[in-house]
């Protein structure tokens, strides 16, 4: 039951993070929130027993892809229209 509660909590946070990442108008904030989303996903997978996938997601999703997104936004406009 405890694990199920943890699972449910993370799953609901995931939806919040996903909506927030798409909602904010600042692209820098969006990419940071997307990193939070990736890390929550990583926690969820570690809890499900997929440790290799969780490790990859922690390094790639929360690490590299955020850096790459920010490095690109650095060369673009930071504000988004929607």
């Amino acid at each position: 039951m405890g694990l199920a509660l943890f699972n449910t909590f993370i799953l609901l946070l995931l939806v919040v993070a996903a909506l927030l990442a798409l909602r904010v108008k600042d692209l820098l904030t969006a990419s940071v929130v997307f990193a939070v989303y990736s890390f929550l996903m990583c926690l969820l997978w570690a809890e499900m027993g997929a440790v290799d996938v969780a490790f990859t997601e922690a390094t790639v999703g929360a690490g590299i892809s955020t850096v790459v997104l920010i490095a690109t936004i650095f060369n673009l406009k930071r504000k988004s229209s929607d």
Partner: peptide, 12 residues
Amino acid sequence: KNLIKKLIGMSI
């Protein structure tokens, strides 16, 4: 409309 937002959506 923003292409970066589209890409974040694609990743989600």
